[in-house]
Write a protein that binds this DNA or RNA. Structure first.
Lengths: 106, 106
DNA sequence: CCAACATATAACCTAATAGTTATATGTAGT
DNA sequence: ACTACATATAACTATTAGGTTATATGTTGG
């Protein structure tokens, strides 16, 4: 099971996700956006891939990384569900929303 | 670095929060709900305390742990806000909910 | 007071994270 | 075919997380 908390627990990874918000990027472009080495970035990308938060497509010598919005959406929903259970009454309406899958899901 | 992601990133801690959903519990009661040692649980409780997700009151030889719903809510809102931003348009309605603090707040 | 119980702390282990540098592999353009 | 470039991998370091056992401390009832 993909663990979104693992993916989110590192600030560099959170930054990478932000970078990928609007457009897919090659590994090189991502590397250039940070001050850390290419292998370090690669490891973060591997973790994001493992948790299925991003996907990659090969294009010649490039690797193009893309945000997996479906997974993020699912994570979003799960988190809401979890916290909804904890906070119950306070969140009744929101919870219902989530459970019904009301959130424009494909 | 106090980090909400840190507190929520461990499943044992998330289980502890669930346990505390309906009632405050002593450390002993919490320990008994898991298969890991008392010092291990203690460490989780310390982290949750550091992130102010729970509070503790001393009662004689007991420590009574209580969920800090306000902080928990804030923590989740932060994470959801982050993910929501990544998803943008796709989640417009739900996102608004979270951002407006519709989840019982301020 | 003291024994039993609840909690705290110390010392230790292992695995995972997050980074490094150096080098290997794969691909494209000339 | 060679070279330059993009990516992958190997080997290493340091730190932290999550767990252990053993023991110390604090509290309470009898």
């Amino acid at each position: 099971m993909p663990d979104v908390y693992r993916a989110l627990s590192d600030s560099t990874r959170r930054e990478i996700m932000k970078l990928l918000k609007d457009k897919s990027l090659t590994q090189k472009e991502i590397v250039e956006a940070f001050d850390i080495s290419q292998p370090a970035i690669k490891k973060h990308l591997t973790i994001l891939l493992e948790e299925e938060i991003i996907t990659v497509t090969v294009q010649g010598k490039y690797r193009l990384y893309t945000l997996n919005r479906d997974m993020l959406q699912q994570a979003f929903r799960e988190m809401l569900h979890y916290i909804g259970d904890l906070l119950d009454d306070q969140l009744a309406s929101l919870k219902k929303y989530v459970e019904k899958g009301e959130m424009k899901d494909d």
